[in-house]
Amino acid sequence: MKLDTYVALLGRGPGRSRSLTRAEARAAMEIMLSGSADPEAVGAILMLMRMKGETADEIAGFAEAAQAHLSAPVIADLDWPSYAAGRTRGAPWFLHAARQVADSGARVLLHGWNGKDDSVRDGARALGIPLCGSITEAGAALDTHRIAYLMLENAHPSLFALLQLREVLGLRSCVNTVCRMLNPGRAKASVQGVFHPSYRLLQADAAHLLGWQALSVIKGGGGEFERHPGKQVDAFGLRRGQPWQDRLPALSEDTSRLQDHAGPLVPVPSGFAQDVIAGTTSLALETLAAGAPGSEA
């Protein structure tokens, strides 16, 4: 089946168009990732979905197809996507949190692409988090360091090409959400940040369809999984494979903006940054525990 079949389903007009089923979404994404689709059809699919709004079935189907294009998966305990561009984020303190989770004994796989913002990858280097260009390399890094950062552009070039269409189309597409749902290490638990609150429930619903066990999605710093300590946080996701949501109380009285604390990542943070890291680490560890076999979370 050609991609124009799915364009027609999405774009027939009022009263006739409809969303894709999970199976249709997977098939459409397989065509887009193959490189055989006409670029006009790819752009049409992505923009039609943006106009109508993505469904959990569509995101789940797209994510399944994207995951299938990866080589043999590494085994991670905690999936940690990082796809924000850093425009409203301070220093990437969440990397300290990921490092602390790994130091607790868990295997933490970060993965991402942050556009022109080099602070995340520079911060990873500063904290000794290996930057990996393939699943095989990431697996070896996890065996040695219990933490790794998988670079999307090297590990999944075809998905990265779709993500880069934002530069052509001028708009964000559902590919951003698909990347967050990629889970290349097949972890049972995932922590995710979003910039737009409406995507929290979408990602939680898609994760439920995909059979994940534990997920925490928050509106985090600049779209990353990074908890502001001075604000209450609405969290969505899964616990023991079932839908979950909670309102987490503020941890401090400091309501300053994260971007007010921008700058290079320092090895030993203090003050506000320390509170950011502590809150982020705590929620990540709670999520990880909820995804463990036999968890009663």
Rank of each mutant, 00 (worst) to 15 (best):
K2A: 14
I135T: 15
H228K: 06
I135C: 08
F160A: 11
G221K: 06
L210I: 10
D103N: 13
T255H: 12
L182T: 00
L109P: 05
A235Q: 09
A66D: 11
G263Y: 03
Q100W: 14
C179T: 02
W212V: 10
Q259P: 13
T280P: 02
A91D: 05
G220T: 00
E30F: 05
A28I: 02
D122E: 12
F94N: 09
P73L: 07
A141W: 03
D122G: 12
S19W: 10
T287Y: 12
V168F: 06
W93A: 13
V175N: 01
M29H: 09
V74W: 08
A65W: 08
D246V: 14
E64R: 07
P14L: 05
V194W: 04
S216A: 04
R87I: 12
P267T: 10
L78H: 00
P184Q: 04
R186E: 08
H111M: 15
G105L: 04
H111Y: 14
F94D: 11
D77R: 02
G221V: 09
V42R: 07
S282C: 10
D103V: 11
R247C: 14
M49R: 05
T5N: 13
T177E: 11
S82P: 01
Q232G: 11
G15M: 03
A85N: 14
G222C: 09
M29Y: 07
A204K: 00
L70T: 00
R99L: 14
K52V: 09
P267L: 15
L159F: 07
S82G: 09
H111Q: 07
R239W: 00
G11F: 06
T280S: 04
A289L: 13
R107H: 01
G105W: 02
P197M: 14
A84V: 13
G279C: 08
L20Y: 05
G263Q: 01
A262G: 14
G15D: 03
H196L: 14
S198M: 15
A148G: 01
C179H: 06
L171W: 12
E40N: 15
L215C: 00
D246H: 15
H111R: 03
A189N: 04
G139D: 03
G112F: 02
G291C: 00
G230T: 01
R99W: 14
F195L: 15
A290L: 03
L165N: 10
H145D: 12
R50E: 10
